[in-house]
Design a protein around this nucleic acid. Structure first.
Lengths: 225, 225
DNA sequence: TGGCGTTCTCAGGTCCGGCTCAGCCGGCTT
DNA sequence: AAGCCGGCTGAGCCGGACCTGAGAACGCCA
Protein backbone atom coordinates (compact mmCIF):
# COMPACT_ATOMS: atom_id res chain seq x y z
CA UNK A 1 0.00 0.00 0.00
CA UNK A 2 1.89 3.08 -1.21
CA UNK A 3 1.18 6.54 0.13
CA UNK A 4 2.66 9.87 -0.84
CA UNK A 5 2.50 12.51 1.88
CA UNK A 6 3.08 16.12 0.81
CA UNK A 7 3.56 18.17 3.99
CA UNK A 8 5.91 21.06 4.58
CA UNK A 9 5.96 20.96 8.38
CA UNK A 10 8.87 18.60 8.78
CA UNK A 11 8.00 17.33 12.23
CA UNK A 12 4.37 16.62 11.29
CA UNK A 13 5.46 14.90 8.09
CA UNK A 14 7.86 12.69 9.97
CA UNK A 15 5.22 11.82 12.55
CA UNK A 16 2.75 10.82 9.84
CA UNK A 17 5.37 8.73 8.10
CA UNK A 18 6.27 6.88 11.31
CA UNK A 19 2.67 6.19 12.11
CA UNK A 20 1.68 5.03 8.66
CA UNK A 21 4.74 2.81 8.33
CA UNK A 22 3.74 1.18 11.61
CA UNK A 23 0.33 0.55 10.07
CA UNK A 24 1.89 -1.24 7.13
CA UNK A 25 1.90 1.52 4.54
CA UNK A 26 4.89 2.30 2.33
CA UNK A 27 5.38 6.04 2.70
CA UNK A 28 7.13 8.70 0.60
CA UNK A 29 7.24 12.27 1.88
CA UNK A 30 7.71 15.44 -0.15
CA UNK A 31 7.90 18.89 1.42
CA UNK A 32 6.75 21.19 -1.38
CA UNK A 33 4.06 21.21 -4.04
CA UNK A 34 6.27 20.99 -7.09
CA UNK A 35 8.17 17.95 -5.92
CA UNK A 36 4.94 16.43 -4.70
CA UNK A 37 3.23 16.81 -8.07
CA UNK A 38 6.24 15.41 -9.85
CA UNK A 39 6.42 12.41 -7.53
CA UNK A 40 2.70 11.71 -7.89
CA UNK A 41 2.89 11.91 -11.66
CA UNK A 42 5.87 9.62 -11.94
CA UNK A 43 4.96 6.91 -9.46
CA UNK A 44 2.00 4.68 -8.82
CA UNK A 45 0.59 5.51 -5.38
CA UNK A 46 -2.57 4.03 -3.92
CA UNK A 47 -3.47 7.25 -2.18
CA UNK A 48 -2.13 10.78 -1.66
CA UNK A 49 -2.18 12.96 1.45
CA UNK A 50 -1.91 16.62 0.45
CA UNK A 51 -1.52 19.56 2.78
CA UNK A 52 -3.21 22.61 1.36
CA UNK A 53 -0.70 25.23 2.54
CA UNK A 54 2.48 24.29 0.72
CA UNK A 55 5.49 26.14 -0.71
CA UNK A 56 5.76 26.53 -4.54
CA UNK A 57 2.43 24.90 -5.48
CA UNK A 58 -0.38 24.61 -2.96
CA UNK A 59 -2.48 21.50 -2.46
CA UNK A 60 -5.25 22.71 -4.76
CA UNK A 61 -2.78 23.21 -7.60
CA UNK A 62 -1.23 19.81 -7.12
CA UNK A 63 -4.63 18.14 -7.18
CA UNK A 64 -5.77 20.06 -10.22
CA UNK A 65 -2.53 19.29 -12.02
CA UNK A 66 -2.99 15.59 -11.40
CA UNK A 67 -6.59 15.50 -12.57
CA UNK A 68 -5.76 17.47 -15.68
CA UNK A 69 -3.25 14.76 -16.46
CA UNK A 70 -5.98 12.09 -16.13
CA UNK A 71 -4.50 10.86 -12.88
CA UNK A 72 -7.31 9.72 -10.60
CA UNK A 73 -5.36 8.50 -7.57
CA UNK A 74 -7.51 9.13 -4.47
CA UNK A 75 -6.53 12.33 -2.66
CA UNK A 76 -7.06 13.23 0.98
CA UNK A 77 -6.57 16.93 1.70
CA UNK A 78 -5.28 18.33 4.98
CA UNK A 79 -6.51 21.77 5.88
CA UNK A 80 -5.87 24.02 8.84
CA UNK A 81 -9.01 26.02 8.21
CA UNK A 82 -12.43 24.57 8.65
CA UNK A 83 -14.53 26.93 6.58
CA UNK A 84 -17.10 25.29 4.35
CA UNK A 85 -15.74 26.95 1.27
CA UNK A 86 -12.38 25.31 1.59
CA UNK A 87 -13.99 21.93 1.98
CA UNK A 88 -16.22 22.33 -1.02
CA UNK A 89 -13.38 23.69 -3.09
CA UNK A 90 -11.34 20.61 -2.32
CA UNK A 91 -14.11 18.38 -3.67
CA UNK A 92 -14.57 20.52 -6.74
CA UNK A 93 -10.91 20.14 -7.55
CA UNK A 94 -11.25 16.39 -7.51
CA UNK A 95 -10.15 15.63 -3.97
CA UNK A 96 -11.88 12.59 -2.52
CA UNK A 97 -11.82 13.49 1.15
CA UNK A 98 -10.39 16.05 3.53
CA UNK A 99 -9.33 16.28 7.17
CA UNK A 100 -9.12 19.35 9.35
CA UNK A 101 -6.03 19.94 11.48
CA UNK A 102 -5.55 19.00 14.16
CA UNK A 103 -6.71 15.48 13.40
CA UNK A 104 -6.37 12.24 15.26
CA UNK A 105 -4.06 9.67 13.79
CA UNK A 106 -6.65 6.89 14.09
CA UNK A 107 -9.03 8.89 11.95
CA UNK A 108 -6.37 9.54 9.31
CA UNK A 109 -5.66 5.84 9.01
CA UNK A 110 -9.34 4.95 8.86
CA UNK A 111 -9.95 7.54 6.15
CA UNK A 112 -7.00 6.38 4.08
CA UNK A 113 -8.15 2.78 4.34
CA UNK A 114 -11.63 3.83 3.23
CA UNK A 115 -10.20 5.69 0.25
CA UNK A 116 -8.01 2.81 -0.78
CA UNK A 117 -10.86 0.34 -0.33
CA UNK A 118 -13.04 2.24 -2.72
CA UNK A 119 -10.14 2.50 -5.15
CA UNK A 120 -9.29 5.09 -7.74
CA UNK A 121 -12.42 6.10 -9.58
CA UNK A 122 -11.87 4.45 -12.95
CA UNK A 123 -13.96 7.02 -14.67
CA UNK A 124 -13.30 10.72 -14.60
CA UNK A 125 -15.38 13.02 -12.52
CA UNK A 126 -17.06 14.60 -15.50
CA UNK A 127 -19.48 12.56 -17.59
CA UNK A 128 -19.25 13.16 -21.32
CA UNK A 129 -20.97 12.05 -24.51
CA UNK A 130 -19.57 13.81 -27.53
CA UNK A 131 -19.48 17.52 -26.75
CA UNK A 132 -22.17 17.08 -24.11
CA UNK A 133 -20.71 17.30 -20.62
CA UNK A 134 -22.14 16.88 -17.16
CA UNK A 135 -20.12 17.69 -14.06
CA UNK A 136 -21.74 16.07 -11.01
CA UNK A 137 -19.56 17.99 -8.58
CA UNK A 138 -20.55 21.35 -10.00
CA UNK A 139 -24.01 20.12 -11.06
CA UNK A 140 -23.41 21.83 -14.38
CA UNK A 141 -24.13 20.81 -17.96
CA UNK A 142 -22.56 22.17 -21.13
CA UNK A 143 -22.82 21.47 -24.85
CA UNK A 144 -19.58 22.53 -26.45
CA UNK A 145 -18.89 25.79 -24.70
CA UNK A 146 -22.55 26.66 -24.13
CA UNK A 147 -23.78 26.28 -20.56
CA UNK A 148 -27.21 24.67 -20.22
CA UNK A 149 -29.67 25.43 -17.42
CA UNK A 150 -31.63 22.42 -16.16
CA UNK A 151 -34.26 22.04 -13.47
CA UNK A 152 -33.56 19.41 -10.80
CA UNK A 153 -35.76 16.83 -12.50
CA UNK A 154 -34.26 17.44 -15.91
CA UNK A 155 -30.81 17.20 -14.40
CA UNK A 156 -31.64 13.95 -12.65
CA UNK A 157 -32.90 12.45 -15.89
CA UNK A 158 -29.89 13.54 -17.91
CA UNK A 159 -27.52 12.31 -15.20
CA UNK A 160 -29.17 8.91 -15.31
CA UNK A 161 -29.04 8.74 -19.09
CA UNK A 162 -25.38 9.74 -19.10
CA UNK A 163 -24.51 7.10 -16.56
CA UNK A 164 -25.99 4.63 -19.06
CA UNK A 165 -24.67 6.19 -22.26
CA UNK A 166 -25.17 3.91 -25.23
CA UNK A 167 -27.56 1.62 -23.38
CA UNK A 168 -31.27 1.43 -23.91
CA UNK A 169 -33.06 2.27 -20.66
CA UNK A 170 -36.77 1.65 -20.25
CA UNK A 171 -39.23 4.15 -18.87
CA UNK A 172 -39.70 1.85 -15.89
CA UNK A 173 -35.95 1.93 -15.18
CA UNK A 174 -36.00 5.69 -15.38
CA UNK A 175 -39.06 6.08 -13.17
CA UNK A 176 -37.51 3.88 -10.51
CA UNK A 177 -34.18 5.66 -10.46
CA UNK A 178 -35.01 9.26 -11.20
CA UNK A 179 -38.47 9.43 -9.72
CA UNK A 180 -39.56 7.83 -6.48
CA UNK A 181 -39.90 4.05 -6.36
CA UNK A 182 -43.40 4.50 -5.02
CA UNK A 183 -44.31 6.90 -7.77
CA UNK A 184 -47.52 5.50 -9.21
CA UNK A 185 -48.34 7.99 -11.90
CA UNK A 186 -48.39 7.53 -15.65
CA UNK A 187 -45.01 6.99 -17.26
CA UNK A 188 -45.98 9.77 -19.60
CA UNK A 189 -43.97 12.06 -17.29
CA UNK A 190 -40.85 10.48 -18.66
CA UNK A 191 -41.91 11.28 -22.20
CA UNK A 192 -42.65 14.84 -21.16
CA UNK A 193 -39.25 15.29 -19.51
CA UNK A 194 -37.44 13.69 -22.39
CA UNK A 195 -39.18 16.30 -24.48
CA UNK A 196 -38.00 19.09 -22.17
CA UNK A 197 -34.43 17.81 -22.30
CA UNK A 198 -34.47 17.54 -26.07
CA UNK A 199 -35.56 21.15 -26.31
CA UNK A 200 -32.58 22.21 -24.21
CA UNK A 201 -29.76 19.91 -25.25
CA UNK A 202 -30.68 18.85 -28.79
CA UNK A 203 -32.98 21.29 -30.54
CA UNK A 204 -30.83 24.46 -30.24
CA UNK A 205 -27.87 22.51 -31.59
CA UNK A 206 -29.62 20.51 -34.28
CA UNK A 207 -28.56 17.28 -32.61
CA UNK A 208 -30.26 14.08 -31.55
CA UNK A 209 -28.51 12.84 -28.43
CA UNK A 210 -31.61 11.25 -26.93
CA UNK A 211 -32.98 8.58 -29.22
CA UNK A 212 -36.31 6.83 -28.85
CA UNK A 213 -36.26 3.06 -29.12
CA UNK A 214 -39.94 2.49 -29.73
CA UNK A 215 -41.31 -0.14 -27.39
CA UNK A 216 -38.03 -0.34 -25.46
CA UNK A 217 -37.11 3.02 -24.04
CA UNK A 218 -34.52 5.69 -24.70
CA UNK A 219 -30.83 5.74 -25.44
CA UNK A 220 -28.26 8.50 -25.11
CA UNK A 221 -25.96 8.39 -28.13
CA UNK A 222 -22.39 7.88 -26.99
CA UNK A 223 -21.19 10.49 -29.47
CA UNK A 224 -23.67 13.04 -28.18
CA UNK A 225 -25.90 12.69 -31.23
CA UNK B 1 -30.26 9.58 -7.65
CA UNK B 2 -32.12 8.12 -4.66
CA UNK B 3 -31.22 8.88 -1.05
CA UNK B 4 -32.66 7.56 2.18
CA UNK B 5 -32.27 9.89 5.15
CA UNK B 6 -32.82 8.39 8.60
CA UNK B 7 -33.04 11.27 11.05
CA UNK B 8 -35.29 11.62 14.09
CA UNK B 9 -35.12 15.39 14.45
CA UNK B 10 -38.08 16.22 12.26
CA UNK B 11 -37.02 19.77 11.41
CA UNK B 12 -33.49 18.74 10.48
CA UNK B 13 -34.81 15.86 8.39
CA UNK B 14 -37.17 18.16 6.55
CA UNK B 15 -34.40 20.66 5.92
CA UNK B 16 -32.11 17.99 4.52
CA UNK B 17 -34.87 16.68 2.30
CA UNK B 18 -35.64 20.11 0.91
CA UNK B 19 -32.04 20.83 0.19
CA UNK B 20 -31.28 17.50 -1.44
CA UNK B 21 -34.42 17.65 -3.58
CA UNK B 22 -33.30 21.04 -4.82
CA UNK B 23 -29.99 19.44 -5.78
CA UNK B 24 -31.77 16.87 -7.91
CA UNK B 25 -31.86 13.94 -5.47
CA UNK B 26 -34.94 11.85 -4.83
CA UNK B 27 -35.28 11.72 -1.06
CA UNK B 28 -37.08 9.39 1.34
CA UNK B 29 -37.02 10.18 5.05
CA UNK B 30 -37.51 7.79 7.96
CA UNK B 31 -37.52 8.89 11.58
CA UNK B 32 -36.45 5.77 13.44
CA UNK B 33 -33.93 2.98 13.01
CA UNK B 34 -36.35 0.13 12.48
CA UNK B 35 -38.26 1.81 9.68
CA UNK B 36 -34.99 3.04 8.22
CA UNK B 37 -33.50 -0.43 8.11
CA UNK B 38 -36.67 -1.84 6.58
CA UNK B 39 -36.77 0.87 3.92
CA UNK B 40 -33.10 0.41 3.08
CA UNK B 41 -33.51 -3.35 2.78
CA UNK B 42 -36.58 -3.16 0.60
CA UNK B 43 -35.59 -0.44 -1.84
CA UNK B 44 -32.68 0.34 -4.08
CA UNK B 45 -31.03 3.54 -2.86
CA UNK B 46 -27.86 5.02 -4.25
CA UNK B 47 -26.71 6.24 -0.85
CA UNK B 48 -27.92 6.39 2.77
CA UNK B 49 -27.62 9.16 5.35
CA UNK B 50 -27.83 7.70 8.86
CA UNK B 51 -28.02 9.62 12.09
CA UNK B 52 -26.29 7.71 14.87
CA UNK B 53 -28.64 8.64 17.71
CA UNK B 54 -31.98 7.16 16.66
CA UNK B 55 -35.04 5.67 18.39
CA UNK B 56 -35.52 1.86 18.28
CA UNK B 57 -32.29 0.97 16.43
CA UNK B 58 -29.33 3.34 16.38
CA UNK B 59 -27.30 4.14 13.29
CA UNK B 60 -24.64 1.57 14.11
CA UNK B 61 -27.25 -1.18 14.30
CA UNK B 62 -28.89 -0.16 11.05
CA UNK B 63 -25.55 -0.16 9.25
CA UNK B 64 -24.53 -3.51 10.72
CA UNK B 65 -27.93 -4.99 9.84
CA UNK B 66 -27.55 -3.91 6.24
CA UNK B 67 -24.03 -5.25 5.85
CA UNK B 68 -25.01 -8.58 7.39
CA UNK B 69 -27.65 -8.81 4.71
CA UNK B 70 -24.99 -8.29 2.00
CA UNK B 71 -26.31 -4.81 1.27
CA UNK B 72 -23.38 -2.56 0.36
CA UNK B 73 -25.17 0.68 -0.38
CA UNK B 74 -22.79 3.52 0.55
CA UNK B 75 -23.56 4.94 4.02
CA UNK B 76 -22.79 8.39 5.37
CA UNK B 77 -23.13 8.64 9.16
CA UNK B 78 -24.18 11.76 11.03
CA UNK B 79 -22.80 12.11 14.54
CA UNK B 80 -23.23 14.75 17.21
CA UNK B 81 -20.11 13.63 19.03
CA UNK B 82 -16.69 14.20 17.59
CA UNK B 83 -14.65 11.72 19.58
CA UNK B 84 -12.26 9.62 17.56
CA UNK B 85 -13.76 6.40 18.79
CA UNK B 86 -17.13 7.10 17.31
CA UNK B 87 -15.63 7.93 13.98
CA UNK B 88 -13.46 4.86 13.82
CA UNK B 89 -16.35 2.68 14.97
CA UNK B 90 -18.44 3.97 12.11
CA UNK B 91 -15.83 2.89 9.60
CA UNK B 92 -15.44 -0.50 11.24
CA UNK B 93 -19.16 -1.06 10.93
CA UNK B 94 -18.98 -0.56 7.20
CA UNK B 95 -19.94 3.08 6.98
CA UNK B 96 -18.23 4.78 4.08
CA UNK B 97 -18.05 8.29 5.47
CA UNK B 98 -19.26 10.37 8.39
CA UNK B 99 -20.07 13.97 9.14
CA UNK B 100 -20.06 15.71 12.50
CA UNK B 101 -23.01 17.89 13.49
CA UNK B 102 -23.36 20.69 12.95
CA UNK B 103 -22.39 20.38 9.32
CA UNK B 104 -22.78 22.66 6.36
CA UNK B 105 -25.22 21.66 3.71
CA UNK B 106 -22.72 22.23 0.91
CA UNK B 107 -20.36 19.74 2.51
CA UNK B 108 -23.11 17.15 2.91
CA UNK B 109 -23.97 17.39 -0.78
CA UNK B 110 -20.33 17.21 -1.82
CA UNK B 111 -19.76 14.14 0.34
CA UNK B 112 -22.85 12.38 -0.99
CA UNK B 113 -21.79 13.08 -4.55
CA UNK B 114 -18.33 11.71 -3.81
CA UNK B 115 -19.88 8.53 -2.40
CA UNK B 116 -22.25 8.04 -5.31
CA UNK B 117 -19.55 8.79 -7.85
CA UNK B 118 -17.63 5.63 -7.03
CA UNK B 119 -20.41 3.25 -8.09
CA UNK B 120 -19.17 1.00 -10.90
CA UNK B 121 -21.65 -0.77 -13.15
CA UNK B 122 -20.86 -4.45 -13.68
CA UNK B 123 -21.48 -5.39 -17.27
CA UNK B 124 -23.26 -8.73 -17.60
CA UNK B 125 -22.77 -11.30 -20.31
CA UNK B 126 -22.69 -10.40 -23.96
CA UNK B 127 -24.06 -13.08 -26.27
CA UNK B 128 -22.05 -13.73 -29.42
CA UNK B 129 -22.21 -15.93 -32.53
CA UNK B 130 -19.37 -15.16 -34.88
CA UNK B 131 -19.27 -11.40 -35.32
CA UNK B 132 -22.90 -11.11 -34.30
CA UNK B 133 -23.20 -9.68 -30.80
CA UNK B 134 -26.13 -9.01 -28.49
CA UNK B 135 -25.74 -7.06 -25.25
CA UNK B 136 -28.76 -7.69 -23.01
CA UNK B 137 -27.91 -4.85 -20.64
CA UNK B 138 -27.76 -2.27 -23.38
CA UNK B 139 -30.36 -4.06 -25.48
CA UNK B 140 -28.06 -3.48 -28.42
CA UNK B 141 -27.10 -5.69 -31.36
CA UNK B 142 -24.08 -5.35 -33.61
CA UNK B 143 -22.66 -7.25 -36.58
CA UNK B 144 -18.95 -6.56 -36.67
CA UNK B 145 -18.82 -2.88 -35.86
CA UNK B 146 -22.19 -2.08 -37.44
CA UNK B 147 -24.99 -1.36 -34.97
CA UNK B 148 -28.31 -2.95 -35.87
CA UNK B 149 -31.70 -1.48 -35.00
CA UNK B 150 -34.33 -4.02 -33.99
CA UNK B 151 -37.93 -3.68 -32.90
CA UNK B 152 -38.83 -5.27 -29.54
CA UNK B 153 -40.28 -8.40 -31.19
CA UNK B 154 -37.30 -8.81 -33.48
CA UNK B 155 -34.98 -8.33 -30.54
CA UNK B 156 -36.88 -10.91 -28.48
CA UNK B 157 -36.64 -13.43 -31.28
CA UNK B 158 -32.94 -12.91 -31.85
CA UNK B 159 -32.27 -13.04 -28.12
CA UNK B 160 -34.02 -16.41 -27.95
CA UNK B 161 -32.16 -17.77 -30.95
CA UNK B 162 -28.83 -16.63 -29.53
CA UNK B 163 -29.56 -18.26 -26.21
CA UNK B 164 -29.96 -21.47 -28.21
CA UNK B 165 -27.14 -20.95 -30.71
CA UNK B 166 -26.48 -24.09 -32.73
CA UNK B 167 -29.69 -25.80 -31.60
CA UNK B 168 -32.73 -26.38 -33.74
CA UNK B 169 -35.72 -24.62 -32.21
CA UNK B 170 -39.25 -25.26 -33.42
CA UNK B 171 -41.75 -22.57 -34.22
CA UNK B 172 -43.81 -23.84 -31.28
CA UNK B 173 -40.83 -23.33 -28.94
CA UNK B 174 -40.36 -19.84 -30.27
CA UNK B 175 -44.02 -18.93 -30.02
CA UNK B 176 -44.09 -20.09 -26.44
CA UNK B 177 -40.97 -18.21 -25.38
CA UNK B 178 -40.97 -15.07 -27.45
CA UNK B 179 -44.68 -14.62 -27.87
CA UNK B 180 -47.20 -15.26 -25.14
CA UNK B 181 -47.48 -18.86 -24.00
CA UNK B 182 -51.19 -18.70 -24.72
CA UNK B 183 -50.79 -17.00 -28.04
CA UNK B 184 -53.24 -18.76 -30.32
CA UNK B 185 -52.53 -17.17 -33.67
CA UNK B 186 -50.99 -18.71 -36.73
CA UNK B 187 -47.32 -19.65 -36.41
CA UNK B 188 -46.81 -17.78 -39.63
CA UNK B 189 -45.84 -14.80 -37.47
CA UNK B 190 -42.61 -16.58 -36.68
CA UNK B 191 -41.84 -16.99 -40.35
CA UNK B 192 -42.61 -13.34 -40.89
CA UNK B 193 -40.29 -12.25 -38.10
CA UNK B 194 -37.53 -14.60 -39.15
CA UNK B 195 -37.84 -12.86 -42.49
CA UNK B 196 -37.54 -9.43 -40.86
CA UNK B 197 -34.47 -10.52 -38.91
CA UNK B 198 -32.78 -11.98 -41.97
CA UNK B 199 -33.25 -8.68 -43.77
CA UNK B 200 -31.50 -6.87 -40.95
CA UNK B 201 -28.76 -9.21 -39.76
CA UNK B 202 -28.02 -11.41 -42.80
CA UNK B 203 -28.97 -9.78 -46.08
CA UNK B 204 -26.87 -6.57 -45.76
CA UNK B 205 -23.85 -8.67 -44.86
CA UNK B 206 -24.33 -11.54 -47.33
CA UNK B 207 -24.54 -14.02 -44.47
CA UNK B 208 -26.89 -16.79 -43.43
CA UNK B 209 -26.94 -16.87 -39.64
CA UNK B 210 -30.54 -18.06 -39.42
CA UNK B 211 -30.97 -21.37 -41.17
CA UNK B 212 -34.26 -23.09 -41.92
CA UNK B 213 -34.55 -26.76 -40.97
CA UNK B 214 -37.51 -27.69 -43.07
CA UNK B 215 -40.17 -29.41 -41.00
CA UNK B 216 -38.17 -28.91 -37.78
CA UNK B 217 -37.64 -25.24 -37.15
CA UNK B 218 -34.73 -22.80 -37.26
CA UNK B 219 -31.11 -22.85 -36.19
CA UNK B 220 -28.75 -19.96 -35.48
CA UNK B 221 -25.29 -20.84 -36.84
CA UNK B 222 -22.76 -20.73 -34.02
CA UNK B 223 -20.25 -18.99 -36.29
CA UNK B 224 -22.75 -16.29 -37.16
CA UNK B 225 -23.32 -17.74 -40.64
C1' DT C 1 -51.28 37.84 -1.55
C1' DG C 2 -49.65 37.53 -6.20
C1' DG C 3 -46.06 36.16 -9.32
C1' DC C 4 -42.83 32.71 -10.73
C1' DG C 5 -40.65 28.32 -11.65
C1' DT C 6 -41.21 23.45 -11.51
C1' DT C 7 -43.67 19.26 -11.76
C1' DC C 8 -47.17 16.69 -13.44
C1' DT C 9 -51.77 15.50 -15.87
C1' DC C 10 -54.51 15.25 -19.80
C1' DA C 11 -56.23 14.99 -24.44
C1' DG C 12 -55.49 15.06 -29.33
C1' DG C 13 -52.76 13.75 -33.12
C1' DT C 14 -49.18 11.15 -35.60
C1' DC C 15 -46.92 7.28 -36.95
C1' DC C 16 -44.84 2.79 -36.37
C1' DG C 17 -44.60 -2.04 -34.93
C1' DG C 18 -47.34 -6.28 -34.76
C1' DC C 19 -50.07 -9.11 -37.05
C1' DT C 20 -53.10 -11.19 -40.73
C1' DC C 21 -53.81 -12.57 -45.21
C1' DA C 22 -53.32 -14.10 -49.75
C1' DG C 23 -50.40 -15.35 -53.26
C1' DC C 24 -46.04 -17.41 -54.63
C1' DC C 25 -42.12 -20.60 -54.72
C1' DG C 26 -39.72 -24.90 -54.52
C1' DG C 27 -39.23 -29.52 -53.24
C1' DC C 28 -41.32 -34.00 -52.31
C1' DT C 29 -44.77 -37.59 -53.09
C1' DT C 30 -47.73 -40.38 -55.80
C1' DA D 1 -46.91 -34.21 -64.31
C1' DA D 2 -50.02 -32.86 -60.94
C1' DG D 3 -50.92 -32.05 -56.40
C1' DC D 4 -49.54 -31.17 -51.83
C1' DC D 5 -47.10 -29.05 -48.17
C1' DG D 6 -43.94 -26.14 -45.71
C1' DG D 7 -41.99 -21.93 -45.99
C1' DC D 8 -41.47 -16.98 -47.77
C1' DT D 9 -43.01 -12.28 -48.54
C1' DG D 10 -45.50 -7.91 -50.06
C1' DA D 11 -49.60 -5.36 -48.89
C1' DG D 12 -52.31 -3.39 -45.67
C1' DC D 13 -55.10 -2.74 -41.33
C1' DC D 14 -55.18 -1.63 -36.41
C1' DG D 15 -54.00 -0.56 -31.81
C1' DG D 16 -51.16 1.68 -29.12
C1' DA D 17 -46.57 3.89 -28.22
C1' DC D 18 -44.97 8.26 -28.41
C1' DC D 19 -45.00 13.43 -28.75
C1' DT D 20 -46.67 17.85 -27.55
C1' DG D 21 -49.32 22.05 -26.18
C1' DA D 22 -52.24 23.65 -22.59
C1' DG D 23 -52.98 24.20 -18.16
C1' DA D 24 -53.69 22.69 -13.18
C1' DA D 25 -51.33 22.00 -8.70
C1' DC D 26 -47.76 23.08 -5.74
C1' DG D 27 -44.11 25.35 -3.26
C1' DC D 28 -41.28 29.36 -2.80
C1' DC D 29 -40.32 34.16 -2.39
C1' DA D 30 -41.06 38.99 -2.32
Amino acid sequence: MRVLVVEDEVRLGAAIRRGLVAEGFVVDVETNGEDGLWAAQNNRYDVLVLDIMLPRLNGYDVCRGLREGENWTPVLMLTAKDGDLDQVDAFDLGADDYLTKPFSFAVLVARLRALVRRGAPARPVVLAAGDLRLDPAARSVTRGSAPIELTPREYGLLHYLMRHTGEVVSKADILESVWDAFYDGDDNVVEVYVGYLRRKIDQPFGRHAIQTQRGMGYRLASDGG
